[in-house]
């Protein structure tokens, strides 16, 4: 049994403390992100030392965690890992002088011995995912870096993005 989809996937706290309609609206279109983050947390928890699981089960959970994170990073880039993009955007907003976005890119280029004057395929691959090399935009669709409400890895914190999609839609229409 794996509670990753539909009604079984809903956050208990949200649905138990808020009116059901409000919880549904807040939860709207977040099912995939919540399910994936929940799955990662579950794997990490199972792989953590201690607990009732056998060493083999723990080892399997660690392998599964590594696999899930690697595939996610491979398809959507390092910033597509849950909360990564939001964290960078928040630090950028709080400390603009650090230029963390720019420095992170420079650091990645250094890691692969690349520079701005030449092509930077490996660092682009790391930042945007493998499909971007073929011109396919998986990152904008698969990225879970913007998991925090109201925070975009591109534009940082935006008040109008705090609202759930149905409210944004109403805002847009009226």
């Amino acid at each position: 049994m794996n509670d990753v989809g539909g009604k079984a996937n809903r956050p208990v706290l949200m649905f138990n403390t808020m009116p059901r309609s409000a919880a549904m609206i807040m939860h709207s279109m977040q099912s995939f992100n919540i399910g994936t983050v929940g799955q990662m947390v579950k794997f990490i928890k199972e792989g953590w030392p201690g607990g009732n699981l056998t060493p083999a089960e723990k080892w399997n959970a660690r392998k599964a965690t590594a696999q899930l994170l690697t595939v996610q990073a491979g398809l959507a880039g390092v910033l597509g890992i849950p909360f990564a993009g939001s964290a960078v955007a928040l630090v950028n907003n709080a400390f603009p002088g650090l230029e963390i976005d720019k420095n992170l890119r420079a650091l990645t280029q250094q890691l692969f011995h690349e520079d701005e004057e030449h092509d930077t395929p490996l660092s682009d691959l790391a930042m945007n995912g493998v499909p971007s090399m073929f011109g396919w935009d998986f990152k904008s669709r698969l990225s879970m870096g913007n998991t925090l409400p109201g925070v975009s890895e591109i534009n940082g914190y935006q008040y109008d993005m705090v609202h759930a999609p149905p409210i944004q839609l109403l805002d847009h229409l009226y």
Binding site: N2, F32, L142
Partner: peptide
């Protein structure tokens, strides 16, 4: 179509958790 990658990201990882 991108939604179709779910089995390769999450589904395969879940099977790995079970089988190693």
């Amino acid at each position: 179509l991108v939604n179709g990658t779910q089995m390769f990201t999450r589904g395969a990882a879940e099977l790995t958790r079970l089988t190693g």
